[in-house]
């Protein structure tokens, strides 16, 4: 359980880090919090020649308000984001997702950007960013590019980050008038989800749903966006009966993961339950905002 040998660099600026990635090309791997990469190194599932450590690039950490959005530096620790008053106030779905990420010692090192770039299909943060329709800002030798969350994750452990690029920050538009809900099921607290659901909802003055989003995680390589469910709720009062009907529109045929310990049938059974709870929570919180 010891990693294969590698060379190590700890740049202090983004420019320096990008220079190292250009120099070493496909031999290099970026390390953020290391809570997924170091196990992969130890198990020798990853054997990079060079590790470029972003932990000393201070400019990559921090959460800042920018007009109607929050800009979250990729190296922001999960624990810091979870404790952030800005996140509590403006991005409740991120907070509820982060509460389910690992344990205090892994959240102390683990970063938002690291989790998003790692793209584990069962991870909470990438799904939350999909639910928020966040924008990923990638820095590369040729400058920066902004990628919508829907185009960012390509599959299991696969994103559109190109060789020589670094995920720099995540930009999330804040909607103060929405309610959010998050539920997942795992064997033990902090374990990877067997299925998860994230919901957002806005209501008008009469309590009619005017906007809804639902994501289901841990059932396919990329979290599933359930537009049919959202469309069925828009224009309706989101009662429990209505939500129960709407979650029947989850595309269960798009579920792929089937393991001996967590069968496809079980995931198909629990995902609509979690989706219903997440939507009920989002509707309830959206209703509270109208009081």
């Amino acid at each position: 359980m010891k990693p294969a040998p590698f060379d190590y660099f700890a740049p202090t600026t983004l420019e320096e880090a990008l220079g190292l990635l250009k120099q070493y090309g496909s031999d290099a791997r970026v390390i953020a919090g290391g809570q997924s990469l170091v196990p992969m190194l130890a198990l020798r599932l990853a054997r990079p020649e060079v590790i470029v450590d972003l932990n000393r690039v201070a400019a990559l950490a921090g959460i800042a308000e920018d007009g109607e959005s929050l800009r979250i530096g990729a190296m922001t620790r999960q624990a810091r984001a979870l404790a952030s008053p800005l996140v509590h106030e403006k991005l409740p779905l991120l907070r509820h997702g982060l509460e389910n990420v690992g344990h205090p010692p892994t959240r102390a090192r683990g970063t938002l950007g690291g989790s998003i770039a790692h793209a584990d299909p069962a991870a909470e943060t990438p799904m939350v960013m999909l639910a928020y329709r966040a924008t990923m800002v990638l820095a590369g030798g040729a400058g920066e590019r902004a990628v919508p969350a829907d185009e960012f994750t390509l599959g299991t452990f696969d994103t559109c980050i190109a060789e020589g690029e670094i995920l720099k920050e995540i930009v999330v538009e804040v909607r103060p008038d929405e309610g959010t809900g998050f539920f997942e099921l795992s064997r033990r607290r902090g374990d990877f989800a067997m299925a998860s659901a994230a919901a957002r909802m806005r209501l008008d003055a009469a309590g009619t749903c005017i906007e809804a989003h639902l994501m289901i995680g841990a059932v396919a390589p990329v979290p599933l966006r359930c537009d049919a469910v959202a469309e069925a709720l828009v224009g309706a009062i989101p009662t429990e009966v209505r939500i129960r009907e709407a979650v029947r529109l989850i595309d269960l045929d798009a579920f792929e993961f089937d393991n001996p310990e967590i069968s496809l049938a079980y995931r198909r059974h629990i995902a609509p339950v979690l989706a219903r709870r997440a939507l009920m929570q989002a509707a309830s919180r959206a209703g509270d905002l109208r009081q």
């Binding site: 190590y8 700890a10 290391g34 809570q35 170091v38 196990p39 130890a42 590790i51 450590d53 932990n55 624990a79 205090p104 010692p105 892994t106 102390a108 090192r109």
Partner: peptide, 20 residues
């Protein structure tokens, strides 16, 4: 698990070289 800069962390998931 050890405490690094005030937070408990996994000692096996931090490289010694990162502890400068």
């Amino acid at each position: 698990t050890i405490i690094v800069d005030g937070d408990p962390v996994r000692g096996c998931l931090m490289l010694a070289v990162q502890a400068q």
